[in-house]
Design a protein around this nucleic acid. Structure first.
Length: 889
RNA sequence: GCGGAAGUGGCGAAAUUGGCAGACGCGCGAGACUUAGGAUCUCGUGCCGCAAGGCGUACGGGUUCAAGUCCCGUCUUCCGCACCA
């Protein structure tokens, strides 16, 4: 099949001049490093030998004595544009880890699959006119091809696809479990509707009133939708973060997203009727300072507005509704609102006390979706209430006296911190924390309030009126009830539809699949649900399916889950800090409660790889110019066609920025091992770093040098003669000993780099070793060559396999035990001591490692004699084995 | 505004517990080998200075014999969140 991405999108390498036939060099040398043939051969070999197949407990050959290691990538959405080098950096990182773990004797689970359902796939399908099932098949084939070409050691027998009925059968099955537990319900809720996408979106998919995907305008609309009760798990989602080895920044983002806040719920009686206005506050201690109340424009109390104020309130509510989310935020500092004509009674005061009669206002700084949609406003101790009261001339009453030295109302500023209660009757004199709990007690005694905890986290809007997603495993009966279909009726397959575009009225495409729609349930006529699940659904449990991907009787077997779970290392972009990771944790906890998994959390260690950025070019008007239209002239960049000067900027890789680098092109030019080395060498995996094609050459040179270290390109021998026989008894001395030390140092550095995934230092260590070994070539032994190839293999596996086989081994290097560092080779008999005078380096001196202090000092004095001449030494600081510092006067 | 991450040569970067700043690589300069080089090899390469030497890890202070690393303050960039009562 022709690859749809033929156009090279590499930034301009220096163009080759016309290629001349190369007479001698290329034709007679048969033994030069040839990545294309080596890589093709070993990739084919890995496939046919199933080298990286992971065995499950119970399978023949499974070795229960080995520790398990589950290393998982965030599986990709297989987009039409294929993989770019930015995606690859994370996959290369996990591959390096997986390969080393195998050599360390672990049973390694390292799978890959496709997150193929969801809006982007469908949008792409609509744009190109190709059915999503078709484009998904094409795109996954392309992704798989690209991943294999990088030499990633996945167990391809475990490949999964969330849009495959054999997979989503179990997504539906899990949804049924949620439904049974009452965690899935239907509700008429105001939801974000995107006209352009013709679907509802979850809160978190809408940014400033525009869709995250496509940046289309969205509006609020009430619609009956499936919801998942993630809020029931809010507390555990928060608490269990403490169990995880995750980046602190991600934990913080999750905590903020859950947004726990503790306080009280307080009832205010509304004057002239039985209505109660319930508010949530984190500061019950300030109840005595509440001088007005505010309800959100959508609050139902507004139906009770007296005629005198009805028109003003109606007008305000309408204008608030017309404001986009963006306008609301932009105008955040300038508060708006109107008086509703209603009054409430503050329960802090006796009825009849004029201080307790407070006006109720409508303002859009109060959100209907948080708390109760209404607040008690304490302008003395809340910035927003303060601004509002100032603007509308409402009384500000001090009820918290700031601690000594802090400014408060006396200085004309709103004080929001902790202090001492004043003007607050029964809580007067209490420090804020005690005043809070005392206030709650008082409210509770009188039955007008109680302690309450709220969360920013909302229930998860789980339906989409789209085609390309999992159908719901439920039917609607004629009597209006909704029931789940039987487990053995699963999967409810998506019907084949030619036209799956959303309808203009917002009804789901599946509503037009008339034959599919009508069904029966236990003999009675029934109608299927026409919504589909959101794109996140399939990724909420996929790590579990990887453990047992072909199980036809259950989503996974208990044995498999017991053995492989949890994921030991999960690597992906920080972009998924909140949504995917929170949803996945939620499902996992539900499954835990059902006894279907044995761990509370799915991902023990999480690691975020950094972004690969790339150069992009702008002309003087700021317009982007594709990288391949750009020419480098010295330090300047110009448009090739016109010579017009351009500015080089560094940005993320994106099709729209015309700076995407396809790994296929890098592999075609340099080979996959060089690509892997470069991506590892650029910098620590966690860092964001720019792709610079110029730098690839260094890795290409290194790998070629490494090849020549073991193979003589001028001869036809598989390896240099000195490596053909084991010189086991040869004494380690001279250059051979020196190389042995270098090798151990390199391995120590490599081992170290797996702690924080800064493989750049591993590559540097390998380079240093090769440079040294090239100089002491004749002294290198077969054993050293073998160990070098072993530690090279996670990084450049194709070449390592090739060299390993040339060294005479017929089995793959993948499971050869990782060499051990021996401490004795990391130490030298003599050490170089830096000699400082007055803190400045003035010389250095070699001394025996075990040298006594007076001897070191004497030697050091000799080395810096001219600097000490005529000076008095006041102090000598000696750092053994490192440094000596003479402080002089 | 709040929260997080970061700031080191021309470029990507390195630097256990505070102990030689710039490993490794790119680029650049010089040379060797070559009919040829985008191959390979050797040497050099933080800045200023002829040199001796001085100055250098965003900026300003501090602690210390010694600071990229610790403390206080400031600035800049990127990423989240953003009226959450």
């Amino acid at each position: 099949m022709p690859c749809p991405f033929e156009t090279p999108i590499l930034p301009p390498l220096r163009r080759r001049r016309k290629r001349r036939p190369t007479p001698r060099a290329r034709t007679t040398v048969t033994n030069a490093y040839d990545p294309q043939s080596i890589e093709a051969r070993w990739q084919a070999r890995w496939d046919t030998d199933r080298t990286f197949a992971a065995l499950n407990p119970g399978e023949p050959g499974f070795d229960a004595a080995r520790p398990k290691y589950y290393v998982l990538d965030m599986f990709p959405y297989p987009s039409g544009s294929g993989l770019h080098v930015g995606h690859a950096v994370g996959y290369i990182g996990t591959d390096i880890v997986a390969r080393k773990k195998r050599m360390e004797g672990c049973n390694v689970l390292h799978p890959m699959g496709w997150d193929a359902f969801g809006l982007p796939a469908e949008q792409y399908a609509i744009q190109t006119g190709v059915h999503p099932a078709q484009s998904t098949a094409t795109n996954t084939a392309n992704f798989r091809r690209q991943l294999k070409k990088i030499g990633l050691s996945y167990d391809w027998a475990r490949e999964i696809n969330t849009s495959d009925p054999s997979y989503y059968r179990w997504t539906q099955w899990i949804f049924k479990r949620l439904h049974e537990k009452g965690l899935a319900y239907q509700a008429e809720v105001p939801v974000w509707w995107c006209e352009e996408l013709k679907t509802v979106l979850a809160n978190e998919e809408v940014i400033n009133g525009r869709s995250e995907r496509g940046n289309f305008p969205c509006v609020r609309r009430p619609l009956k939708q499936w919801m998942l009760k993630i809020t029931a798990y809010a507390e555990r989602l928060l608490d269990d973060l403490d169990l995880l080895d995750w980046p602190e920044s991600i934990k913080i983002q999750q905590r903020e997203w859950i947004g726990k806040s503790e306080g009280a719920e307080v009832e205010f009686a509304v004057e002239g009727g039985a209505d109660k206005l319930v508010v949530f506050t984190t500061r019950p201690d300030t109840l005595w300072g509440a001088t007005f109340m505010v309800v959100a424009p959508e609050h139902k109390l507004l139906q009770r507005v007296p005629a005198s104020h009805r028109e003003a309130v109606r007008a305000y509510v309408q204008s608030a509704a017309a404001k986009s989310e963006l306008e609301r935020t932009e105008l955040a500092k300038d508060k708006t609102g109107v008086f509703s004509g209603l009054f409430a009674h503050n329960p802090a005061f006796e009825s009849g006390d004029p201080r307790g009669r407070i006006p109720i206002w409508v303002a859009d700084y109060v959100l209907i979706s948080y708390g109760t949609g209404a607040i008690m406003a304490v302008p003395g101790h809340d910035e927003r209430d303060f601004a509002f009261a100032r603007k509308f001339g409402i009384e500000v009453r001090e009820v918290v006296r700031p601690p000594q030295g802090e400014k408060g109302l006396a200085e004309g500023v709103c004080f929001t911190g902790d202090g001492t209660a004043v003007n607050s009757g029964p809580v007067d004199g209490l420090p804020t924390p005690q005043a809070k709990s005392r206030a709650i007690e008082l409210l509770a005694q009188r039955g007008v309030g109680k302690a309450r905890t709220t969360y920013k986290l909302r229930d998860w809007l789980f339906s989409r009126q789209r085609y390309w997603g999992e159908p719901f495993p439920l039917v609607h009966l004629t009597d209006g009830t909704t029931v789940a279909v039987d487990d053995d009726a699963l999967p409810i397959e998506l019907p084949q539809m030619e036209d799956f575009k959303p309808s203009s009225d917002g009804s789901a495409p599946l509503a037009r699949a008339t034959a599919w729609l009508q069904t029966t349930h236990k003999g009675a006529p029934a109608r299927r649900d026409t919504d589909t699940m959101p794109g996140w659904a399939g990724s909420c449990w996929y790590w579990l399916r990887f453990m047992d991907p072909h199980n036809a009787r259950a989503p996974w077997s208990k044995d498999a889950e017991q053995y492989w779970g949890p994921v030991d290392l999960y690597v992906g972009g920080a972009a998924h800090a909140v949504m995917h990771l929170l949803y996945a944790r939620f499902w996992h906890k539900v499954l835990f409660d059902l006894g279907l998994v044995h761990t509370k959390e799915p991902f023990q260690k999480l690691f975020n790889q950094g972004l690969i950025t790339a150069f992009a070019y702008q002309d003087s008007t700021g317009r982007l110019v594709a990288s391949d239209e750009v020419e480098t002239r010295g330090n300047e960049f110009v448009r090739k066609a016109s010579g017009e000067p351009l500015e080089q900027i560094v940005t993320k890789m994106a099709k729209s920025l015309k700076n995407v680098v396809n790994p296929d092109d890098v592999i075609a030019e340099h080979g996959a091992d060089t690509l892997r080395l470069y991506e590892s060498f650029m910098g620590p995996l966690a860092d964001s770093k720019p792709w610079n094609p110029r730098d690839i050459a260094g890795c290409a040179r290194f790998i070629d040098r490494a090849w020549r270290l073991l193979v003589d390109p001028e001869s036809s021998d598989p390896v240099r003669p000195q490596f053909r026989v084991d010189q086991g008894d040869r004494p380690l001395e001279g250059d051979t000993l020196e190389l042995e030390k270098q090798l151990h140092r390199a391995i120590a550095r490599i081992d170290d780099s797996f702690k924080v995934f800064n493989f750049n230092t591993s590559i540097a260590a390998l380079m240093t070793f090769v440079n040294e070994a090239m100089k002491k070539h004749a002294a290198m032994t077969r054993s050293q060559a073998e160990r070098f190839v072993q530690v090279l293999s996670p990084f450049a596996p194709h070449m390592a396999e090739e060299l390993w086989s040339r060294l005479g081994y017929s089995d793959s290097i993948a499971y050869v035990p990782w060499p051990k560092v021996q401490q004795q080779f990391l130490e030298d008999d003599t050490v170089e001591i830096v000699v400082q005078v007055g803190g400045k380096v003035r010389g250095r001196v070699g001394v025996p490692k075990a040298a006594a202090q007076p001897d070191v000092e004497a030697a050091a004095r000799g080395a810096v004699a001219s600097w000490l001449e005529g000076k008095e030494t006041v102090k000598v600081v000696l750092v053994p084995g490192r440094l000596i510092n003479f402080i002089v006067k």
